[in-house]
Design a protein around this nucleic acid. Structure first.
Length: 256
DNA sequence: AATCCTTTCAACCGCATACAG
DNA sequence: TCTGTATGCGGTTGAAAGGAT
């Protein structure tokens, strides 16, 4: 399989985008769309490779990008979805309107993963306070203000009251314990999260009963074919998400 | 006040996959 | 079917910001 030659480095700019470059890119895409990323920078007069333009648009300039801190609901959704999908950031991002895979990946690695790691001494807690608000790029055109939709995963009303990352000193470790190390959580944690191995085995048994050695792989996309199972990857995810939701209802989980 | 250290996040890199000819 | 190209994706990096000493 031939690999695309990486963007010619000669004369192409790298590094942070300037407000002017952002303006040019946005204006070009608004006028002509982005059917051909490779040709776009040349057409727009940008000294960037198509890949860089695409990334900049997708991760930062798209009109429907939701900026700012992740809400508690979104973080919960990421945690739950990560349990289902693994490091398939784009699949997770598809469930979180306005959020990008890159952003979710960053949040996971810098914020959520820490909470999900086995309980550590308090001295190892992050020392630094989260930023109050993400800075808006000064060049962000007003037309880029997009809809701010909430996380797709429903939560209880009281949970929806907290909306900033700063308020997320919550039960992540408990969630992790219950989901990954079900035998290690405390009774208090147990009350909050009760997803354990039995939960998954029961849940999966509902629909994957006919799968055998065809294998159920951990990343969700290649579960054994059952009669109820979807055929495409996208269907797969919808299917498992719905299943997950239903299972959560059955378990009366506090989240999702 | 200066320096060091940690955290964050935008951007890059390289591989995988889809697709066209 | 094969080959080349474009795009998508996940892992990684490095500069900037800000807290700690």
């Amino acid at each position: 399989m031939g690999r695309a030659p990486c963007c010619e480095k000669m004369g192409l700019k790298r590094g942070p985008w300037t407000p002017e470059e952002d303006r040019v890119l946005v204006a070009h895409i608004e006028r002509h769309g982005h059917s051909n990323w490779r040709a776009l920078p040349k057409q727009a007069g940008l000294l960037r490779c198509g890949k860089s333009c695409r990334l900049r648009w997708i991760n930062y300039l798209r009109p429907d990008i939701k900026r700012g801190n992740f809400s508690r609901e979104e973080e919960d959704a990421i945690i739950q979805l990560h349990q289902m999908l693994g490091n398939r950031w784009s699949a997770i991002a598809a469930r979180l309107p306005g959020r990008t895979d890159n952003e979710i990946k960053n949040v996971w690695h810098t914020h959520l993963k820490k909470h999900l790691e086995p309980t550590k001494p308090a001295s190892q807690a992050p020392k630094r306070k989260p930023k109050q608000q993400q800075q808006q790029p000064e060049a962000m055109p007003t037309t880029l203000e997009g809809p701010t939709t909430g996380a797709v995963v429903p939560v209880s009303p009281e949970q929806s009251l907290s909306t900033s990352t700063t308020s997320t000193t919550t039960d992540y470790s408990a969630a992790a314990s219950s989901m990954e190390n079900a035998d290690t959580f405390t009774s208090e944690e147990e009350e909050d999260y009760q997803i354990d191995d039995s939960f998954w085995s029961e849940t999966l048994a509902m629909t994957v009963d006919s799968s055998d050695d065809s294998g159920m792989q951990t990343e969700g996309s290649t579960f054994g074919a059952s009669s109820a199972a979807p055929s495409t990857n996208e269907d797969d995810m919808d299917f498992w998400l719905k299943l997950f939701m239903q299972a959560s209802d059955m378990q009366n989980l506090p989240q999702i």
